[in-house]
């Protein structure tokens, strides 16, 4: 797989963020820029595909809910939000942040104040899930060899 670009990275982080965290980051911006909705937020479905034998012929597993939105800043920059679930607001905020992050003047601050903390939160949640099950890992000992 190709290396993720910066934009792919932040879009993934925005999609996985909790809505409340995004709202907080939005409210915390020094100034909230004007934008118009090129595509109003909407809820739809994505057909999830799997692969037979995990690596073979693709097949349609079932659908999942998906929200999307496209916004445009006054300077013409377009931002896209595609997020799992049915939160139109989440899709809209993800799109706005995507647009703002494309602005060179805003990029550095947004990355350090918004994207990195959101990513750190997600990583921490994943590690917690992983640690949760770590205790259920089986330590086999072989009776024949009797080394245990």
């Amino acid at each position: 797989m190709q290396e993720q670009t910066n934009r792919q990275f932040w879009m993934g982080v925005l999609a996985r963020a909790q809505l409340e965290s995004l709202e907080a980051h939005w409210a915390g911006l020094p100034e909230q820029p004007e934008y118009r909705k090129v595509r109003a937020p909407e809820v739809g479905l994505a057909m999830v595909q799997g692969r037979a034998g995990s690596g073979g012929q693709a097949f349609n597993l079932g659908e999942m809910t998906l929200s999307r939105c496209v916004v445009q800043l006054d300077d013409g920059t377009a931002g896209f939000g595609y997020v799992r679930g049915r939160s139109k607001r989440h899709a809209e905020l993800a799109a706005v942040f995507d647009a703002l992050l494309q602005n060179d003047d805003r990029y550095a601050a947004l990355m350090s104040d918004c994207i990195q903390p959101l990513h750190a939160q997600w990583t921490a949640d994943r590690n917690a899930l992983s640690r949760d099950v770590a205790g259920t890992k089986v330590d086999f000992f072989t009776l024949v060899r009797g080394e245990a």
């Binding site: 909407e42 739809g44 479905l45 994505a46 595909q49 693709a58 349609n60 998906l66």
Partner: peptide
């Protein structure tokens, strides 16, 4: 609901 996308195989 409209179908908006087909995902890459997981």
């Amino acid at each position: 609901l409209p179908r908006l996308a087909v995902t890459s195989p997981v």
